[in-house]
């Protein structure tokens, strides 16, 4: 790990302002992803801004019946919250499907949103990676791609977003609240928060440098059955090959977001319109523009079957 200095931020605006003064500064909260990457020198911040004392660790109901989740709420606490379990079950389920008990106790809501990819070529510093070193090329393309993206990919990057939580937040139409270094606040729809790789896979979110996430808000609950189904190489403590977050209504309509297939949670309203026609129709729309490799083409059929399982469970 490279040496760094640190400071403890007192307010969200001060934290953002501190980051703006240093191009190589990073916020640290739970640290479970950042420290892992710092040990490998994939992340090399020269200054850390500890945001743990910012009192952004509350879950509150909003005036319109939704929920405002502080950026520092730990994954365990969010998954265990009674209102989340009752009204936003897909979020609890997604959180509990990710990582281990130890990691969920540390990992925060904002940190989970910003999790970096688990593409093995991003992790191996001997390999070319446009995300780790822009312009160096992509060793994943033409390499071992079984776990990598099948849709929304580019010639520069085929990495996937590893988060389970993000898939559920996409299905729930969450909004990300932020504060910029100049004190301005804004709300970013989850659909616009994560980006596709395009020519700049190193730019993963809509955040500007120094912009700090303060909360995630959920609109009022929409009812329906909340299901998160994750398919992986072992039964627990593994990243998804594919995962499906479903909120399915009694009349068969609903929402479907897919994880493990793209650089962001993959959801399309025109695919959801096909829900009454069944899983195959939905998958056909979701993957109409897919560009899989020979090694990961299976994810398309696997997603279709996982959607079918979700719809079966919703009917049961």
């Amino acid at each position: 790990m490279k040496s760094f200095t640190f400071e403890r931020a007192e307010t969200p605006a001060k934290a953002a302002a501190a980051a703006a003064n240093n191009e190589n500064a990073k916020f640290i909260a739970g640290g479970t992803n950042l420290l892992d990457l710092m040990k490998l020198e994939i992340e090399v911040p020269t200054h850390l801004i500890d945001v743990n004392k910012l009192k952004l660790d509350r879950i509150e109901e909003t005036d319109d019946g939704g929920l405002r989740i502080g950026a520092l709420v730990r994954n365990t606490d969010l998954a265990s919250h009674q209102t989340v379990r009752r009204d936003f079950g897909v979020l609890s389920r997604a959180l509990l499907a990710g990582a281990s008990g130890q990691l969920r106790n540390k990992a925060t809501t904002a940190g989970n949103l910003l999790q970096r990819t688990r593409c093995p070529y991003f992790y191996d510093t001997n390999m070319a990676c446009n995300k780790r070193q822009p312009g160096s090329g992509c060793s994943a393309i033409g390499g071992f791609t079984r776990q990598l993206g099948v849709v929304g990919v580019s010639d520069a990057c085929i990495a996937t977003n590893p988060s389970d939580m993000n898939v559920a937040l996409r299905a729930l139409d969450a909004t990300v609240e932020t504060v910029k270094p100049d004190g301005e606040t804004r709300s970013i729809a989850i659909a616009d928060f994560h980006r596709l790789p395009g020519d700049t896979p190193q730019v993963e979110t809509a955040l500007e440098h120094g912009e700090l996430i303060t909360a995630v808000t959920l609109p009022a609950p929409v009812g329906g059955k909340h299901i998160y189904r994750k398919v992986r190489d072992r039964a627990s403590y593994a990243f998804a090959l594919v995962s499906v977050a479903g909120v399915i209504q009694p009349d068969g309509t609903g929402r479907i977001a897919v994880g493990g297939v793209a650089h962001k949670p993959w959801r399309m309203e025109e695919a959801e319109a096909e829900l009454p026609q069944g899983a195959q129709a939905v998958a056909n729309r979701l993957f109409a523009d897919a560009r899989p490799t020979d090694d990961n083409e299976f994810k398309i059929l696997l997603t279709e079957r996982t959607i079918a399982a979700v719809l079966d469970e919703a009917r049961a």
Binding site: F6, I28, T32, L35, D36, T76, Q102, L103, K106
Partner: peptide, 18 residues
């Protein structure tokens, strides 16, 4: 794994000064 304020965490992924 150790307990911090009664909760289990991975002590390898946490900085001492925090």
């Amino acid at each position: 794994t150790v307990l911090v304020d009664g909760k289990r965490i991975n002590s390898c992924l946490s900085l001492a000064w925090m």
